[in-house]
Amino acid sequence: MPVYTVHAPTADGADLRATDRFVFVRDGFHFWAALLAPIWLIWHRLWLALIGWIVVVVGLELALLRLGAGSAALFWADLIVAILMGFEAASLRRWTLSRHHWRQLDVVVADDAEAAERRFFDRWAAKQRGIVNDQQAVDRGGPPPTRDVPGQSFSRTPPGPGSGIIGLFPEPGGQR
């Protein structure tokens, strides 16, 4: 089962307003990072890692050419760099997030990214129950508040329990 790390920006903090910015990074081998490393690095905006990858690949190929290595040696060297890139892609994303002052909130084990999000937010929301003064939370379960405005239907108080009426009829024996 894949393992995901959850990261949050520290500037916003790990509160309710920052949940849409949380990042889930899957640990393990990334096929597209191994196959198309520069495009994968650009897609994930890992600029320093892209520069490092270019320096390593160009330096390695120049060193092998200086040593007089053949095309087979260049192929195997490129293959090894691609495999290493596939295994270390998640670490590069986590490193870039930590450089931008993001912090790791949790580690989640799940079948896919959606299940990881669901599992993390279930656990995280249980810890956040103590939040007070949340302006975005709205209780939609109760009736609207009554106001003392003369002539408005919402201003009338409901009949008390002493009226003896149970049901939907306004008065005993009245029209149906």
Rank of each mutant, 00 (worst) to 15 (best):
D20M: 06
D15T: 10
P144G: 09
F24N: 02
K127I: 12
F169Y: 10
K127A: 13
T157Y: 13
W76H: 05
D122W: 01
A137R: 08
R93C: 05
T157N: 13
L79H: 11
V138T: 02
A110E: 00
N133M: 14
A14E: 08
M1W: 03
L16Y: 04
V23K: 00
V109W: 07
D78L: 05
H100C: 09
W32T: 01
A63F: 05
I165W: 10
G70I: 15
G141S: 10
A116M: 07
R103S: 12
I80S: 09
V132R: 04
A8P: 07
P158K: 06
G86C: 03
G52M: 07
R26L: 04
R45W: 06
Q128S: 12
Y4W: 08
V108S: 02
W32I: 02
R147A: 09
L36T: 04
P159L: 12
W53T: 06
A18Q: 02
W95V: 04
F29Y: 03
W47E: 13
L60W: 06
P144A: 13
V108H: 04
I42R: 08
D12G: 08
V107I: 08
D20I: 01
R66M: 12
V58D: 07
G70C: 11
F154V: 04
V23G: 02
P150H: 08
L64S: 05
V57Q: 06
G142N: 09
T146C: 14
G167S: 13
R176A: 06
T10I: 13
P2H: 03
W32P: 00
W40N: 05
W47D: 10
R147V: 13
D139F: 15
P38V: 14
I39C: 01
A73N: 05
D27L: 11
R66G: 05
H7P: 02
D122K: 03
A82F: 04
A33W: 03
S163E: 09
P158H: 02
V25N: 00
Q136A: 04
P161L: 12
I166E: 15
V108E: 07
R147T: 02
W76C: 00
G130E: 11
G141H: 10
F24M: 04
D12M: 09
L97H: 00
P172F: 06
V55L: 09
S71L: 03
L79F: 07
R103E: 12
I51S: 13
A72M: 10
A37Q: 01
G151F: 11
G28Y: 14
V108F: 00
L97R: 00
W43Q: 03
P158W: 07
V56I: 09
Y4A: 02
G162K: 12
Q104L: 05
G160C: 14
E61A: 05
S153M: 08
W102R: 08
G70S: 13
F22S: 02
F154Q: 11
L60F: 09
P159M: 11
T157E: 15
A14F: 00
G86F: 04
S98C: 14
V149W: 15
T96R: 15
F87L: 15
L62H: 10
D12N: 07
E61N: 11
R156C: 03
R26I: 02
V107C: 08
I166W: 15
S91C: 15
D20P: 00
E114M: 01
A110F: 03
I131T: 14
A82T: 05
R140K: 12
T146H: 14
S71C: 07
D134Y: 14
G173M: 15
G70L: 13
D106E: 06
L65P: 05
W76N: 08
G174E: 05
L67V: 13
